[in-house]
């Protein structure tokens, strides 16, 4: 698997800093699970946090805190050793990666899809942040996602199948980062339904008035 479309630096740095909302972070963390190259960039970004922490200016005395933490250590129960890591079943690599799998509560074969019309399905994903909408989308093979532009940003992470958009192909692990200026029409590649994670920060604006009219009922 070769990933061609990677995380932008601003997403990586925000995720490393801990300032990225939960919805965006699901897409970022799931891409990271599939992309060793972006994980190496993440470790650079986290090292920036380490350096800033090391050089933060503060000379407060910690004698009092030390006494209290020391007492807590002695009360603390002995820590059980962490469980041995599970060995992944050989050859299994195509499933839904964590953390996404836990968010949707199952893998490809157990998902409970809700119809979205025109053969498309979705599964809304709940988060505790208030700025994003997160959903898993299934676009039928060979069919377009209705053409739309955005009120804000949209991250689309491909998990199965692929789609083409603006002359580029996005396959498993690839992430498309679209902003408000882009009107686009992704089309699922023939052969396999395309399953992707879509995170937006505002309701999508569909061009077609019919789609717009029913949008409130679809919840997209």
């Amino acid at each position: 698997m070769t990933i061609r479309h990677h995380l932008s630096d601003d997403l990586l740095v925000s995720y490393a800093a801990g300032s990225l909302a939960e919805g965006w972070s699901i897409a970022v963390a799931t891409h990271l699970a599939l992309c060793p190259s972006c994980r190496r960039s993440l470790s650079v970004a986290e090292s920036i946090g380490g350096d800033l922490l090391e050089n933060i200016s503060d000379n407060a005395s910690v004698d009092h805190s030390w006494a209290s933490v020391r007492a807590r250590l002695q009360q603390a129960p002995k820590i059980a050793a962490g469980g041995t890591p599970e060995t992944p079943p050989a050859g299994y690599s195509g499933g839904l990666p964590e953390p996404l799998r836990s968010y949707v509560g199952g893998d490809f074969d157990t998902l409970k899809w809700r119809p979205l019309g025109r053969g498309a399905y979705h599964i809304p994903i709940r988060t505790r942040d208030r700025e994003t909408m997160v959903r898993l989308l299934r676009i039928p093979a060979g069919k377009p996602v209705p053409e739309h532009s955005h009120g804000g940003r949209e991250l689309t992470l491909v998990l199965n199948g692929s789609f083409a958009d603006g002359g580029e192909v996005f396959a498993r692990g690839d992430i498309e980062d679209a902003d408000a200026s882009l009107t686009h029409q992704p089309v699922a590649t023939p052969g396999t339904d395309c399953i992707c994670l879509a995170v937006t920060d505002a309701p999508l604006k569909f061009r077609s008035w019919i789609v717009r009219a029913i949008q409130p009922f679809l919840g997209i």
């Binding site: 992944p88 079943p89 505790r128």
Partner: peptide, 19 residues
């Protein structure tokens, strides 16, 4: 923020390890 921090899991069977 009272949010979870989504993170990848290196022991996940779908995780793609580094070379």
């Amino acid at each position: 923020r009272r949010e979870k921090r989504p993170d990848f899991d290196p022991n996940d069977p779908a995780f793609v390890p580094d070379d």
